[in-house]
């Protein structure tokens, strides 16, 4: 079995703790790219984690990368880290050199028109809700043509028009419009449907790991608050009503982390990985509708302020649970597969 590189996780966690402060997150929301933080992560090799060293990556495994993304989520890191790491994996797996530029990704696009004219390709279409385009150089996305062929596009963002938008955590989620955007053959790479599926599920799991990390963080903050905050002459955590709520939150955060980790350790087998990722995204997204209200209820009014950092996590959780498909979207697929199979549910598990 593959295990997580403990030292890498500890070092990364330390860096995030020191650098990814409340102020840095607020500044990012106001439009300032945390350049020093990013460069530090880059120089540590965090952005190429899971890419073999002989391909100019920093080595380690994808499992390690997912563990790092959980840390990023637990510090509400306002950077395109998941996007860069996953784009880099695709480059290497398709035999392309690693770019020196910053990448963002879009998960799936079936209504983008792709025309080949000898050596050039003309792209027309819209990519919706793409993270952090203003801080990235390229948009990487798998695109399926009407004939069922898959291509990985690497679109220089300066060739596109972007319409700014954001999620409710203030992370940019922009519309990228390609109008007769011309790409050369090194920017349009044929890929197998399996590769495309892998890209999609890795993207999904990246967000799921971040949610698991943020859930851990709101649990930690809630426990801390319940021990510190005094009412009626004692810490509120001494009251049964609060204890019971915290126990429920603990159950949600722990179970979400178990299923996210379980998906991350399944990276070896493709089919099993994809099933486990869909299940993880469904379960973790679903747990947020119960977990976030508890964290806010325990924090009470102070957690409703901008001053307190709780909202940096809860706004992200509310955003991330719907990104790349909510629990309703993925549960429908899981349920349809189960019901349409000729096997009993138990034998499908």
């Amino acid at each position: 079995m593959i295990t997580i590189e403990r030292m890498l996780v500890d070092t990364t966690e330390k860096l995030f703790k020191q650098t990814c402060t409340k102020e840095l997150i607020n500044d990012a929301e106001n439009g300032t790219f945390p350049k020093t933080f990013w460069n530090e992560l880059d120089s540590m090799g965090i952005t190429t984690i899971g890419v073999p060293e002989d391909c100019n990556g920093s080595g380690f495994t994808k499992l390690d990368a997912f563990a790092v993304l959980k840390i990023a989520g637990s510090f509400a890191a306002p950077i395109p880290l998941a996007e860069s790491i996953i784009a880099n994996w695709q480059y290497v797996e398709l035999g392309l050199p690693l770019p020196n530029t910053k990448q963002t990704i879009s998960m799936i696009n079936e209504d983008v028109d792709l025309q080949q004219h000898s050596e050039t390709w003309i792209i027309n279409g819209t990519f919706n809700r793409v993270p952090f385009t203003q801080w990235a150089d390229d948009l990487v996305s798998p695109v399926k043509t009407p004939t069922g062929k898959w291509y990985l596009l690497k679109i220089p963002l300066n060739l596109t028009t972007t319409v700014p938008d954001s999620n409710i955590a203030g992370e940019s989620r922009n519309k990228v419009i390609c109008k007769n955007t011309s790409l050369n053959s090194s920017q349009v790479i044929a890929m197998t449907p399996e590769h495309a599926a892998q890209f999609i599920h890795e993207t999904l799991l990246g967000r799921t790991m971040m949610m698991a990390g943020a859930l851990q963080q709101i649990l930690t903050m809630s426990i801390h608050h319940a021990k510190e905050r005094q009412q009626f002459g004692r810490p509120i955590g001494k009251f049964q009503a609060i204890k019971q709520q915290l126990a429920v939150l603990t159950g949600l955060a722990t179970s979400a982390n178990v299923i996210a980790d379980s998906a991350a350790t399944a990276t070896v087998d493709n089919i099993q990985f994809q099933n486990e990722v869909k299940i993880a995204k469904t379960y973790v997204s679903q747990s947020i509708s119960k977990a976030v209200p508890i964290a806010h209820q325990i924090h009470a009014a102070i957690g409703f302020t901008h001053e307190h950092p709780l909202h940096q996590y809860t706004r992200r959780l509310w955003s991330w649970r719907d990104e790349y498909g909510s629990e309703a979207f993925w549960a429908k697929q899981i349920g349809e597969n189960v019901i349409s199979s000729s096997k009993s549910l138990w034998k499908q598990l």
């Binding site: 299940i279 469904t282 679903q286 899981i334 349920g335």
Partner: peptide, 17 residues
């Protein structure tokens, strides 16, 4: 489909735990 899918996701999570 959605309701069954949610149950399956929870079941798998509990089994892993």
């Amino acid at each position: 489909y959605t309701e069954i899918g949610k149950l399956v996701a929870t079941l798998v999570t509990l089994r892993r735990m």
